[in-house]
Each structure stands twice: as structure tokens, then as C-alpha cells.
């Protein structure tokens, strides 16, 4: 049913730290690896090795140059890597526009999913998502999207520490965090509160569950820490004799 639940028991989602993300694409790769065998499998690739390689991905990392932000410090600009995926919104209009009931938001944990057996592939949900999170699988004729690794986080066949989304598990800089954003005492909620986590495009009113932590203000800039001068090298003995000979 495409009517949205008034409330959800939990608000599972991600917190992404734009300060520490180094744009290594590890989350992108592990997402693809897990999900091409997971609930939404396959994440079809077309012309994988050709000139027009195309395929379905749930996570894409952009790179931006930011100017005029406190994160730049004394420098003119700062590079910011930006992972973009489904935000599992509280009012996801990708769900309400669905004519068949294939798209739905779970009452238990707030995860937004697609039932591929009901999807007619009209693509309207991808138009309704401001964030470009949904990608159509041309080969299968259905819409696909991030599942928040619903097949990992409750998976009792995995070790408990592995029951997190693939992107979170693999991040080498711990820029990605997973938890219940509906619980103010959860680690992720505390992180959002302490770092001033924000919504993307809040003006559209989709109320994203995922939060982004803006890059931190840079206090000790490169200009404020001058490099110490190199000390002159003096050599004696045999090396001193060679140095003298070559300096002649």
C-alpha cells in the first residue's frame, strides 16, 4: 500500500560524515557487491567493458569544490566528497506516487522498499525522488533502490558486528554510521546532535531520515603553520672531503 505510515517504530538510517569521507568509492563497491546478490538482485550492468558502460548502483560518490565555507579555513577552497543514496525519507513521495503499491515504507523500521513483483516500471517514483536515489533496471524492467541492506541488518547468519549495511561495514575512514535516528539516545542521534547534522534539500519537505555531517571548521590552516627552515648540512671526515671536492 502506498499510503504512508503515520509513524514508524524505528527510523533506521545512515549518518554520513562529509568531513572524513575521502571519496575512495569503497562503499560504492561493497554496496554493489552485496546487493547484486541481495534482495534487489541483480544490479544489472550493461556493456560493462564497452564505451557506454551503464548499470544500476544504489550509492554514488560525487566530488565537489567548496568555497566560502568555514571548512576551507585559510585556504581558498576545500574538496568535499559526497556519497548519494536513498535517504529513507519520512514522507517519501516516491512511495505515494506509485500506482501499483510496489513501493512501500515499512512501519517497523521506516525502510523504503520496492516489491519487484508488483512494479510495472513506469519510472514515476524516480521522477518523484529529488535525490536521484532510484535507478531503473532496463534489463529487468523494474525500479531498483537501496534497501538499507535489510538482508544484512537482521541476518542471523552473519556475525552480530557484521549486521550493518555493506557501505557502513566497509568504510575505511568510518565516515558512515548506521542506527535508529528515531531514538534520541542512539549513538547516531547523539552524533547528529553534536556535529549539527543536516537534511538534504529540506525545503522540499521529504524529511529525510539519513543525515549528513557538514565538514568541520578548519582552525589550524596551512598558512598558520609555517614550515621550519631546513638546517644546512655539514659533513666532516671522508664525506666532508667528497662534499668539498664536488662543491668546487
Amino acid at each position: 500500500m502506498t499510503s504512508l505510515p503515520a509513524t514508524t517504530d524505528k527510523k533506521l538510517g545512515l549518518v554520513i560524515d562529509l568531513d572524513t569521507c575521502v571519496g575512495c568509492q569503497a562503499c560504492v563497491t561493497n554496496c554493489k557487491e552485496w546487493n547484486t546478490g541481495g534482495l534487489m538482485a541483480p544490479l544489472t550492468d550493461l556493456k560493462s567493458y564497452g564505451a557506454e558502460a551503464d548499470g544500476v548502483w544504489f550509492n554514488r560518490v560525487h566530488t565537489y569544490e567548496v568555497t566560502g565555507h568555514e571548512a576551507c579555513g585559510a585556504s581558498a577552497s576545500r574538496t568535499m566528497h559526497f556519497p548519494r543514496s536513498c535517504l529513507h525519507c519520512e514522507t517519501p513521495e516516491c512511495v505515494t506516487v506509485c500506482p501499483t503499491g510496489a513501493s512501500y515504507k515499512r512501519t517497523t523500521d521506516g525502510i523504503v522498499l520496492v516489491n519487484e513483483d508488483l512494479c510495472i516500471g513506469c519510472k514515476l517514483c524516480s521522477w518523484a525522488c529529488p535525490y536521484g536515489a532510484r535507478e531503473f533496471d532496463v534489463f529487468e524492467g523494474v525500479m531498483k533502490k537501496c534497501t538499507l541492506c535489510v538482508d544484512r541488518i537482521y541476518n542471523e547468519n552473519l556475525a552480530e558486528e557484521d549486521r550493518v549495511p555493506a557501505c557502513v561495514l566497509t568504510c575505511p575512514t568510518s565516515a558512515r554510521h548506521f542506527g535508529d535516528l528515531g531514538d534520541p539516545n542512539s549513538d547516531v542521534s547523539k552524533l547528529v546532535a553534536s556535529r549539527g547534522g543536516v537534511d538534504l534539500m529540506p525545503e522540499l519537505g521529504y524529511k529525510p531520515t539519513n543525515k549528513y555531517l557538514p565538514p568541520r571548521a578548519r582552525k589550524d590552516s596551512a598558512a598558520a603553520r609555517p614550515t621550519p627552515e631546513l638546517k644546512p648540512i655539514t659533513a666532516d671526515g671522508f664525506l666532508g672531503w667528497v662534499d668539498k671536492l664536488l662543491s668546487r
Binding site: R60, H62, T63, V66, G68, H69, Y212, P214
Partner: peptide
């Protein structure tokens, strides 16, 4: 991208993919 401030400017320098998706 969730940034705000009077002089903040964000310029795309690299896409996540080389071909159109």
C-alpha cells in the same frame, strides 16, 4: 549537499561515473 552560509559555493569537480547513467 546540505551546506549553508551566505558565501558558500559548491562546484562539481568529478561525477561518480564516467558515462551517462
Amino acid at each position: 549537499v546540505g551546506l549553508s552560509g551566505p558565501n558558500v559555493k559548491v562546484t562539481s569537480v568529478e561525477w561518480p561515473h564516467t558515462e551517462a547513467n
